[in-house]
Amino acid sequence: MAVTTAGGGRGIGGGASAAAGKQHLLEMREGARVISHTPARLNTAPSRAYYFYLMLPAIIVLACITLYPFFWLVWMSLHDVDVGAAADKWNDFANWIRLGRDRKFQDGWWLLLQYSAMCMVLQIGLGVLLAVILNGSRHEKLLVTIFLMPMMMAPVVAGLVWYYLYNSTFGWYHWLMQSAGILGERSILGDPSTAMLGIVIVDTWQWTPLITLIVLAGLKRVPRDQLEANMVDGAGEIRNFFQITLPNIYPFLLIAILLRFMDNFRFIDHILVLTGGGPADSTKILPTYLFDVSFQFFKLGRGAAIALTLLAVTIVLGLILVRVFQSPTAQTRPEDS
């Protein structure tokens, strides 16, 4: 089934007729980037109003809690916002101008980039390796279920557990690393040179399985006959992986990277629990800095300006992501191939 967006699951399979499936496939083959499959005959005037009314409540609620705050955000970024009762004061772009000489703001972006890059390399590497191993392994179901468990955990709780494990006086992982001679007397989170790594490890622990699952879904769609044709053509397993498997799972990798990248922007729960941005601001990635400015120092105006920069980058990433989402390859089901 080649529906462009969302949903799916086998549960609905029975509902989707073969005809609808064919239609979608057709759209896919023709390479049209269709955002929806809408029966043309539905676009007759009398019935449209009905559908708009059904749509309205959600749109209104969503506008209230996202669009309105967005304009509010822009407003705030241009004013001195007082947490007390005083009215907001126009400040001639002072919030924005300040960003230009705010070292912590620039460092925040740089650290965010570093953090994301480290997470990406580790998680994609491990995730792909794991997926390749799991694919077709005898214990695939069981192992996948085990790997799902960290993902279900609240990131804060995960952070707390790791905080406990990392602790330099009673943490078991600290003891383990010291005993193995990896770490000296230092505490991993207490040292600016290793704190970031400590957080990356927690993030990797919790979210590598997601990448594994995405890649695994991709691996199931690699057409068997292409692999076999390449084998007959003379390829061994390793060449087969790079020549056939990798190009086929490429959209899945892209989706995994983009999703994780955006999650690194979205969530800072791990950092808040583990280091709070320290030591010596070595883990103060931009969202963490934004959190501090807004909710520790309550400089909501400056926070708004920082938030807007973060939002802008996210929207660009989002646009790319939506493109990739709609690429036909990721949308075919395993049976199609």
């Binding site: 809690i65 705050p69 979205r266 996210t314 929207i315």
Partner: peptide, 11 residues
């Protein structure tokens, strides 16, 4: 997709 922290400031 918007970062939670960014949304939270105006909210």
């Amino acid at each position: 997709m918007a970062p939670v922290v960014a949304v939270m400031v105006p909210l």
